[in-house]
Amino acid sequence: MDSKTAILYLENVNVSFDGFQALNDLSLSIRPGEMRAIIGPNGAGKTTMMDVITGKTRPDSGRVLFNDVHNLARMDETDIATLGIGRKFQKPTEFENHTVNDNILLALSAGRGVWQTLFAETSARENERIDEVLHIIRLDAVRHNASANLSHGQKQWLEIGMLLAQDPKLLLVDEPVAGMTDSETSETARLLREIAEHHSVVVVEHDMDFVRDLDVEVTVLHEGAAIAEGSLDYVSKSERVIEVYLGR
């Protein structure tokens, strides 16, 4: 692995919570433009890994590099977001009291400063972009509804729409299809593949049909370390992976 050619490069990252080792010498490298799926049993450390990348959790040791120069381990959430890393949380956390439209508006890439937002006027360009995003995530019909009233699947899509609006260089997507119907799931896979054409994406998911649908390289996490990497077919043949999944 080489940090120079990677958009995201993790090297020997360790995180422990009260002595419990959540990430154990985790190393991982994502190429620019790549989409990577991360799988692994509950508690493997997938969400913790995203917490480390986005500045929510500070690693005890190890390096986390973005574009080879930015050391994410030393930056806070806001700075990391500003660099161009967007995140969709495992549990949807859209702004419940805002309309679907305003959720997208807040995510839209634009000045994030206090004075900039105080005097901000939504431009025609921005409104067009909001329309586009709402169309892609199929929420145009409910754009003026409070997002709290959306179905679970719709909330998941709203989160993906917010990522689209934010237009980051690297997207971290935690369990996007949890709670979705089969048709919603395959629709989401299509949407992510489309997004991956112009972005680097890391997707965490338990749904194997969905991961197969994505048709990308897979990393298997177990007890805070990467134990296998390759195509889904390849890693499913790994004895270690079979043991981890069946031995639960």
Partner: peptide, 20 residues
């Protein structure tokens, strides 16, 4: 728009940070 950000901070502060 600042008011919308304020409400967002009120309801999900950490989420606003991850949005920058």
């Amino acid at each position: 728009k600042l008011g919308k950000v304020l409400i967002a901070v009120r309801d999900a502060e950490h989420r606003t940070r991850f949005l920058g």
